[in-house]
């Protein structure tokens, strides 16, 4: 049974695409056949984060217009053969596809891949509707900010109305030191508001920015980072394993000591 999961948030810039890219890679590393579908027509980014921009020849729009076959549009990642990307068109608007066409595409992919991750655009308009139409499950990405949480709450409501009931929460870009100082919403605060099961907490990490700009998902990096570990844990939880949450709420220096410990174990 193929799992069709949409990554969405309502608010923009909270890390939907970063989560999609890293989670896709993490699942592929676990040996799963993964297809990433970029549903952000007109403002596509997923290809950049994966470093696959210059390999795109056909996009989903061309497949739907019958100008190429679906497998011609799929871009394979040379670093991780288990993962493919179905790119969105950059020169069209969100109205270029319909929810029914998205279903058609995803259902065709479902015959071959075990996981289909759909990267939703921000907002709740046509692009969002397209992205959630084929989905069976959803991952809500939010940052510990009032605005992001409010938008996430709205999106959870819309997803439930659409019949997507398996919804999990990812809290991105948390800064334990600020939470400690009571300057930032804590994981508990967010969870209390949204009341959906938590599947992962990703700490704020500068290396995410570096990996994004280089087009190399953090999960593929040789040097371990807490953020990459968090993504891998989410992948394992999706697989049904019980994995302890990382202790991020502990004091700031603990992160560095943890990182150092990780590095040492790698070297020794």
């Amino acid at each position: 049974m193929t799992r069709i999961i949409v990554t969405t948030s309502g608010k923009g810039g909270v890390g939907k695409t970063t989560v999609s890219a890293n989670l896709g890679m993490a699942l592929a590393k676990l040996g799963r056949q993964v297809a990433l579908v970029d549903a952000d027509f007109g403002l596509r980014n997923l290809d950049l984060l994966l470093g696959l921009e210059n390999r795109i020849v056909y996009t989903a729009v061309e497949v739907l217009a019958r100008e190429c076959r679906l497998d011609q549009a799929l871009v394979k990642d040379k670093r991780q053969p288990n993962l493919v990307l179905l790119p969105a068109a950059q020169n069209r608007s969100k109205d270029a596809v319909t929810p029914d066409q998205m279903k058609l595409l995803v259902n065709a992919l479902a015959k071959k891949y075990q996981y289909i991750l759909i990267d939703s655009p921000a907002g709740i308009e046509m692009g969002f509707k397209n992205a959630i139409a084929p989905a069976k499950e959803a991952l809500i990405v939010t940052t510990p900010e009032i605005s992001a949480v409010r938008d996430a709450d709205r999106v959870v409501g819309l997803l439930e109305a659409q019949g997507v009931n398996k919804i999990h929460l990812i809290i991105n870009r948390i800064r334990p030191a600020m939470v400690q100082a009571n300057d930032m919403m804590s994981v508990q605060d967010v969870q209390e508001l949204l009341a959906i099961p938590l599947i992962g907490v990703i700490p704020d990490d500068e290396r995410v920015i570096v990996s994004t700009n280089r087009g190399e998902p953090l999960v593929l990096s040789d040097t371990p980072s807490i953020a990459a570990l968090a993504f891998e844990n989410i992948a394992r939880r999706l697989e049904g394993q019980t994995v302890e949450f990382l202790e991020l709420d502990s004091p700031n220096d603990n992160i560095f000591s943890r990182l150092r410990k990780l590095l040492w174990t790698k070297i020794v």
Binding site: D71, Q72, V75, K76, L104, A108
Partner: peptide, 15 residues
């Protein structure tokens, strides 16, 4: 046409 979207063993021409 469903044929149109069916997947083939050869996945990607850019590999």
């Amino acid at each position: 046409n469903s044929d149109h979207l069916s997947l083939s063993p050869v996945t990607c021409h850019l590999s």
